[in-house]
Simulated scan of single mutants.
Amino acid sequence: MLDTEAKSFLDAVKAAGRPDVSTLTPPDARQLYKETRGAVTPEPPEVSELDNIAAPGPHGPIPLRYYRPAGVDKREPIPVLVFYHGGGWVIGDLDTHDVVCRSLANEARCAVVSVDYRMGPEHKFPAAVDDAYAAAHWVAGEAKSLRIDADRLAVGGDSAGGNLAAVVALMARGKRKDGDATAPKIGYQLLIYPATDMHMDTQSHKSFAKDHLLTRDSMDWFQLQYLNGTADRDDWRASPLRAKSLAGLPPAYVLVAGHDPLRDEGEAYAVALKQAGVPVVFREFPGQIHGFVVLGKVIPQATQAIAEMGTALKLAFGQG
């Protein structure tokens, strides 16, 4: 059964006549996404530090936002989560996911570095991947100035951001195997309803193609903006589920929503990780919809999900 609050939210979106993203231009879609955040986003919790910084990247400087949780010694090296926001590789930014990053920092007692990676259609695949990896690499290398422990570094994100986090973990593993000692030592993956296969041919894609926040039309539109063509769907940097091997990756927490087109591919990725010998915590919120974690003002289970993810991160960081 669809969660009561989730149903009420979907009904309100429909009643408001909110257009499907597929009917908009990318700039208009970004603006609509930002404008609608206030009605669904909780008040931002206090953190001890928040700084807008930047990392050098292959396509130019990458804007970042650094969070340090409330109640920690400002000089203490603490664990860090490098976070990639969702939005189909087209919409979303540091502001749209500010509350989630603040909340995760406080719940996990870790620093969070949110990454404003380049997006389509202005910057096609793999620009977002390049930025995502460069940001994690830079964070690990700047451990002293950021007052973080580079040996306790996690990557995470929601939806498209979960896709990028999974891909960054794969890239870091490959570079370390190739002898790159500077590659970040990623210790954990926090994958929130991640997109893992661009072919979108699972049963959940068929079951929830319409009348949900994320529709089939919108997903086709996102791919059109992000990818260079259909051939990119087979590239593991776009579809991490299609990587030759997932062995040797860091442990993962994989969260899926039961009424989400991405549910089956998220579960498939968790299963594939387990089969490759990777420790996995798989968590399904059966009554929830795609994107619910950032809808805490109208969907209370978002708060529960963030608390659970914070606990998982603390355990991964040895702070449980």
Rank of each mutant, 00 (worst) to 15 (best):
E5T: 12
R18V: 14
D20N: 01
D20Y: 00
Y33I: 08
R37A: 02
V40S: 10
P42G: 05
E46K: 14
I53L: 15
G57M: 00
P58Y: 02
P61S: 14
P61G: 00
V72C: 14
E76P: 02
P79T: 04
V82I: 15
Y84Q: 00
G86K: 01
G86Q: 04
W89S: 13
I91N: 05
I91R: 10
L94Q: 01
H97R: 14
D98L: 06
V100C: 07
N106D: 12
E107A: 14
A108R: 00
C110R: 05
V115C: 05
Y117W: 09
M119R: 15
H123P: 03
A127F: 00
A135Q: 01
A136F: 01
H137I: 00
E142C: 11
A150S: 14
R152Q: 14
L153V: 08
D158G: 11
G161V: 00
L164A: 11
V168L: 11
L170N: 11
L170R: 05
G174C: 08
D178H: 11
G179K: 10
T182R: 13
L191Q: 11
P194R: 07
H199C: 08
D201A: 15
Q203V: 15
S207E: 15
F208L: 07
L213W: 01
T215F: 07
M219P: 00
L224S: 11
A231V: 08
A238E: 13
K244V: 09
A247D: 12
A247H: 12
V254L: 03
L255A: 15
R263M: 05
G266W: 02
E267G: 08
A272V: 14
G277S: 13
V278N: 10
R283S: 06
R283E: 14
R283T: 06
E284W: 02
G287T: 09
Q288R: 03
H290W: 05
G291R: 06
G291M: 04
V294R: 07
L295S: 00
K297L: 12
V298Q: 04
I299L: 12
P300H: 12
A302N: 07
I306Y: 06
A307I: 10
L313P: 01
K314R: 15
L315K: 03
A316W: 13
G320M: 03
